[in-house]
Amino acid sequence: MDLTLHVWRQKGPQDKGKLETYQAKDVSPDMSFLEMLDEVNDGLIKSGKDPIAFDHDCREGICGMCSQVINGRPHGKQEKTTVCQLHMRQYNDGDEIFIEPWRAKAFPVQKDLIVDRSALDVIMQAGGYVSCHTGGVDDANAMLIPKPIADYAMDAAECIGCGACIAACPNSSAMLFTGAKVAQLAALPQGKPEAKKRVKAMTEALLEEGFGNCTNHYECEAACPKGISVKFIAKLNREYLKSLLPSSTGV
């Protein structure tokens, strides 16, 4: 099949950038979307032009590196699928495809489709961990965690940190990303001692990094390639409320 691509090209962070049009010829339906772009790039290189820069690494849908908004949808039109797992059989001959980077103030474009997502790392550094030392911890079975709780934590922990939730959010809020981590750790006994501190610190970091506020649009859940539920945002809200309540010990 032949396709017309409109790709966001931007030389560097300071450049204005614009959409440019390319033709992708003889695309096989078995190719992944990124392999289609590889082909387009090979053509660009051979004609002496700068290939399209895009982030990608594992190409098996788990590392969270790939980040493209395709026809207005982060990771493209297939549900619960990262760009690298999206295959060209989802498209038809003659289709026009718009490819843009994640857009948010907190994700400045570096080049073409590559954005800087270090703000997500900063949110994690604010409290997305249990402060245990290496070594000197209890036996793994010392604290029992019933299966439903372990499953709940695992549902939240599946987040790959790609940032599609932010790219999809009309407010560029990182609440699903943050909520998933807060919920995972708050559900587990190991994470409870720091739960109050964590939810405050992580939500503060979120604003400082320039993300917007959550207003319950739920676009994040629809865009998430791992299907992370907005119930984890609800859990974050509840954890925050709990952190406001005075405790009997005063701490």
Binding site: C132, T134, A140, P146, K147
Partner: peptide
């Protein structure tokens, strides 16, 4: 064995049974 202890302490959600054991 220390690795499993360490990961559980960090909040790694390993699969568990209904009684809560790994």
């Amino acid at each position: 064995n220390n690795i499993i202890d360490q990961c559980v302490a960090q909040g790694v959600p390993f699969a568990r049974d209904y009684a809560g054991y790994l």
